[in-house]
């Protein structure tokens, strides 16, 4: 904030001796005010990103300090959005740092009335077991006319449309190879 190394004495003295007789500005400035700087300026790094909400694809700049996102704002370089964001895009820092976000695996047993904890690795292990089990049980090799089916109709997937292309690619690739055909997306809705 520029040349702000003024002495901070009793502001009344400043009023009497300086130009700010009525105590409106220069005389009353606090040390904190004088040293204000935006947290974008003190961030460790800025990462270019894209807004996760609608399909306009607005550019975002993600400011990181101490490995935490401290600010997300529009990227003025983007020829799509020219630095602007809608209310959802403007809230994306809260989306990321939301205290309501659940960050551990939750598991509900059949017929249970509440969640319980489950380690992530164990969850993936259990899910792969469930998938193989259902797949084996519901496998259709051919239809009644002998036409090849090679699939399971016992498993389905419905994805949101905020998944990355790379993610969709692995999802489609893995499920298709596994014979899961009911792979669907918000794009249908």
């Amino acid at each position: 904030m520029g040349a702000r190394n003024r002495r901070r004495s009793w502001p009344v003295l400043g009023q009497l001796t300086g130009a700010d007789r009525l105590g409106r500005g220069a005389a009353v400035e606090s040390a904190r005010t004088a040293s204000l700087s935006p947290r974008t300026a003190t961030a460790d790094r800025v990462v270019q990103s894209v807004c996760p909400y609608c399909a306009v694809g607005c550019g975002q700049r993600v400011y990181v300090k101490n490995e935490k996102v401290v600010q997300i704002e529009g990227d003025p370089d983007s020829p799509i959005s020219r630095g602007r964001l809608c209310p959802k895009g403007s809230a994306s820092e809260q989306l990321v740092n939301n205290p309501n976000r659940v960050t551990s695996v939750r598991y509900r047993r059949p017929y249970a009335t509440d969640w319980e904890d489950l380690p992530l690795d164990r969850a993936v292990d259990m899910i792969s077991d469930r998938l193989l089990d259902t797949r084996a049980r519901t496998w259709q090799e051919a239809d009644k006319d002998g036409n090849k089916l090679r699939r399971t109709m016992g498993i389905a997937s419905l994805g949101g449309a905020t998944l990355d292309n790379e993610e969709n690619y692995l999802i489609k690739k893995l499920f298709t190879a596994a014979g899961v055909v009911q792979v669907e997306n918000q794009a249908r809705i």
Partner: peptide
């Protein structure tokens, strides 16, 4: 309240 003396402020 005693930081400043402001004739524009009746409270001051």
């Amino acid at each position: 309240m005693l930081r400043v003396a402001k004739p524009t402020s009746p409270m001051s």
